[in-house]
Structures are given as C-alpha cells and as structure tokens.
C-alpha cells in the first residue's frame, strides 16, 4: 500500500492506495504520526482508493484517531469504499470514525 500526504490550510490529507491490512497498518501509523508531529492535528484519511481494510487496518485508524485527539485535533475519514464500510459497520466503529464523502467536506463546517 502507498501512502502520501498533503498539508492544506485547515487540515492535512493522508491518502492510502491499496489494501490497508496488517502489512500496511504500521505504515499508516507512521505517516499520521509524522503529520501530527509536523503540527497538523486535524487529519483526513482519504480512503477513496483503499479497496480493502482488515481489523489491523481498523486498529491503526483508531490509534491514529487517538494520536490526533491527543494533539488537540481530530481524525476523519473520507471516500469509504464498500468493503471498508462493511468492516466499520460490523465492528460498530462507524460511530467513532466519522465518514465524509470527500476530504474537503470532512472539516468543511469547522
């Protein structure tokens, strides 16, 4: 899985392309830690090109959410695809990880 990020005016967008599985999960944690350490604690993880997520990937997102909140910000997700949506719903984590249709919208009203 490939990650990239871009720091925008009011948030940072982290984009993941591929499968967010146990191999990719530690990389996501590293990327978000770097973004938060760089001063952007409002983070959107854009999952529009993430076609698969397992419980390790979900665990990494929860860890990243905690890291962003500890730094005074928040973490939101966007562009959730059907398999990822299924995993979020079955584990009841859709209530914790708020999904937005696009990265722009995620912090649009704050």
């Amino acid at each position: 899985m490939q990650f990239s990020y871009e720091v925008r005016d009011t948030y940072a967008e982290v984009k993941g392309v591929g499968r967010l599985n146990m191999v990719a999960a530690p990389k996501l944690r590293e990327v978000v830690a770097e973004v938060v350490a760089g001063g952007s604690s409002r983070v959107v993880v854009n999952l529009a090109e993430t076609d698969f997520m397992d419980s390790s990937g979900l665990g990494a997102l929860i860890g990243c959410l905690k890291a962003a909140r500890q730094a005074g910000g928040d973490l939101r997700i966007s562009g959730v695809q059907p398999q990822v949506k299924m995993v979020l719903e079955l584990t009841n984590m859709d209530r914790v990880l708020t999904a937005y249709s696009s990265a722009e919208e995620a912090f649009g009203n704050d």
């Binding site: 419980s55 390790s56 665990g59 990494a60 079955l90 584990t91 984590m93 209530r95």
Partner: peptide, 19 residues
C-alpha cells in the same frame, strides 16, 4: 467478542464469525 471502542486490536475473530 468485540473489544471496547478504544481498543486497537482484538476484533479479528469477532469479525470472522460475523462474516
């Protein structure tokens, strides 16, 4: 069993059983 919301692991087997 599903762990609490804060947990960063421990959901794998619960997920398998649901699927």
């Amino acid at each position: 069993d599903l762990p609490d919301e804060e947990a960063e692991s421990g959901r794998g087997l619960a997920l398998i059983e649901m699927l």
